[in-house]
């Protein structure tokens, strides 16, 4: 009897919490398609007033498609750098004995500990003034180009493969490059999926760095142009709420879809530091 009551309390607690967690998303998606998003509780289940105008409204001010394209280029650049150089580094750390291995390991740990905010000013000086990469895609991508968490994931993956596979290839006289190409890379797919998912959310959601480095609105990713809309344009617009929610939905949608499709690939240990940078 008492146990039963405990179960009820548990379900009640979880359902209540889940409702609090899900409600802002419901409000965001419904509001994005409403002529005027409601501010009163009795209109939370609208039956009429559906429209796509909000998307047109925000598109006319921040160029939704262009911003999405910039987000995509930014994210793709980071993914490309991480998938190639991160894979190489992870493979070397896991499977090869070479000069500088210990030092690389120490650096990997160091990167996890240094907060990006401390590096913000020197990186800004270095990349805009030193390299002259302000207002470029490269300048946007560079600080995130190789995700260290991804290097850890690759390292763990290659370490878990049986040693005999690599030894046998070496005894057969295969070169290290060939072992990498014909054994390591073809096997990497599961690790690569995790890496892509974990790496994707970092640059896609990133606001601070692209905000610092881009003055040119045609280069800004969606997170930055939406933020500009919220902080500057919205005040001078008659009814900005629907447009804000339409922009927020557009920015949130790809990640939510990816997460729901690939739920099992997301684990706590992977994602923690990926988002950190």
């Amino acid at each position: 009897m008492r146990r039963q009551r405990g179960t009820w309390v548990r379900y009640l607690l979880l359902t209540l919490a889940a409702a609090v967690f899900a409600f802002p998303f419901y409000y965001m998606v419904v509001g994005a398609f409403q002529e005027s998003p409601t501010n009163t509780p009795d209109q939370l289940l609208p039956t009429s007033g559906w429209t796509l105008d909000n998307f047109a409204a925000i598109d006319s001010r921040i160029n939704l498609i262009g911003s999405l394209g910039n987000s995509l280029i930014f994210t793709a650049g980071v993914l490309l750098g991480t998938a190639t150089f991160g894979l190489l580094a992870g493979y070397a750390m896991a499977r090869l004995d070479f000069r500088g291995r210990g030092a690389t390991w120490v650096l990997m740990l160091l990167v996890q500990m240094v907060p990006f905010q401390l590096l913000m000013i020197p990186l800004y000086v270095q990349i805009t003034r030193g390299f002259g990469l302000g207002d470029t895609y490269l300048g946007m991508i560079l600080p995130f180009a190789i995700n260290t968490t991804a290097v850890f994931i690759f390292t763990q993956f290659f370490r878990a493969l049986p040693q005999e596979m690599f030894e046998a290839a070496r005894i057969d006289g295969a070169s290290e490059l060939r072992i990498l190409r014909s054994i390591a890379v073809p096997l990497v797919k599961p690790a690569l999926t995790t890496v892509v998912l974990v790496t994707f959310i970092g640059p896609w959601n990133e606001f601070l760095w692209p905000f610092l480095i881009t003055k040119d609105a045609t280069l800004q990713p969606l997170a930055v142009s939406l933020a500009n809309y919220i902080s500057n344009v919205a005040q001078s617009t008659a009814n900005p709420n629907g447009a804000i929610l339409a922009g927020a939905t557009t920015l949130a949608f790809p990640v939510v879809i990816l997460f729901c499709l690939f739920q099992r690939y997301f684990t706590a240990s992977n994602i923690g530091s990926a988002v950190k940078g």
């Binding site: 889940a18 899900a22 959601n205 922009g247 939905t249 997301f266």
Partner: peptide, 16 residues
């Protein structure tokens, strides 16, 4: 339900 806010961009959720 609990995890999705963590994955979603701050800018989106701040707007909401």
């Amino acid at each position: 339900a609990f995890y999705v806010p963590y994955l979603t961009a701050s800018v989106s959720l701040v707007g909401v």
